[in-house]
Simulated scan of single mutants.
Amino acid sequence: MREETFKKRKPKIVVIGGGTGLPVILKSLKEKDADITAIVTVADDGGSSGVLRRSFNAVPPGDLRNVLTALSEIPELQREIFQYRFKSDDRNLDGHTIGNLIISAMTDMHGNIYEAIQLLTKLMRVRGHVFPAAEEPLNLHAQYVDGSTQTGESKIPKKGKKIDKVSVTCVEKERPVKASRKVISAIMNADLVVLGPGSLFTSILPNIMIPDIGDALIETEAKVVYISNIMTQLGETEELNDADHVRVLHKHVGGKFVDIALTNIGIVPEDYIEQEINEEYLLQVEHDFKGLKAEVPMVISDDFLLLTEKSVYHNGEKVAEEIFKTAFNSQRKIKKYL
């Protein structure tokens, strides 16, 4: 009887990342009967987010905005307004989204990004929890294989050099980098922790290079899943296959912590790659099953492709179904971590 009651609770799924891939998965995962927590990168320094980050010396809002929208249950028109991006001759407005401005305003009103996001989750009827990875903006640093360095998430890929490793610091460097409140407890109390999909060096690693998040990923009893990217990215992952992506994660954290690799084996049509309008993406990430098995205990491989006129995406519904099944089967009696 006790086991039956245990099995009926919602599996706790924590998703960590940023960029455009994460909202695709969250939007589909929202429809599952799961307790979802999204932990979102705070190292972005480009575009509207970068301008607002510098203006307010605050956490960049863009990735948080996209996650809030993906998990929101407000009417479509309200989501469209939240995501609307100004195209204006006024330099003060051009390129900014309404959502970015709202998040920045609420952070200014309440004095910190954590309180602002928690209030917005209520106002936007978010199904789940959204936490910034840290409560202050972080600088992302890269060291390339040739020994040179670069600081700035938006600048790192533009060097066109092979990245050896990345790290993060607070903008005010004398302070240690710390995870936002409730982030560590969410990881420790999860049934499943999901990394990605997203840019390996600039969307995923900025989160797990926060020391207490990296430690939590090693220590948690939850299964850790890595969703491999579909395409290689200019200035980040040229020539890296799916096993290489996992090796990079393990190298940065200092040990093997990924339990499951979810990887696409569907073939992106060659003529589609040739007409790919987003020049950031290069070629399809190659599948190395043998290499993955040397890094992780379990590999989930399938055709996870969704091809649109604009780009190549993961099929959110198929990925969410695999994540939910894995989380449900991984449920455990949780010792509450405070």
Rank of each mutant, 00 (worst) to 15 (best):
Y226K: 11
L205M: 15
E279S: 13
F257W: 10
S203L: 12
A222S: 01
N207Y: 07
D215R: 12
P197G: 14
I210C: 08
I277R: 14
I267T: 14
A243S: 13
G254I: 13
R247Y: 04
M209E: 03
N207W: 05
A216T: 10
N264A: 11
M231A: 14
L195Q: 05
K223G: 12
G196D: 10
L249Q: 12
M209G: 02
F201T: 04
D244M: 06
Y226H: 06
P211L: 07
E270T: 11
Y281S: 00
V225N: 03
V193F: 12
I227G: 02
A261Y: 03
V224D: 03
E280V: 15
D212R: 06
N264P: 04
E274K: 15
L240E: 03
R247I: 01
A261M: 12
D191Q: 04
Y281P: 03
T237F: 03
L234F: 05
A261W: 03
L240N: 09
I267N: 11
G198Q: 05
E238C: 09
Y281D: 01
D242C: 15
G198P: 00
E238A: 14
P269H: 02
T237C: 04
E219H: 09
M209A: 01
I265E: 14
V246K: 11
P211G: 06
D271M: 12
D244R: 11
N207Q: 07
I218V: 10
E270A: 02
E274I: 09
P269D: 02
I208K: 08
E280N: 15
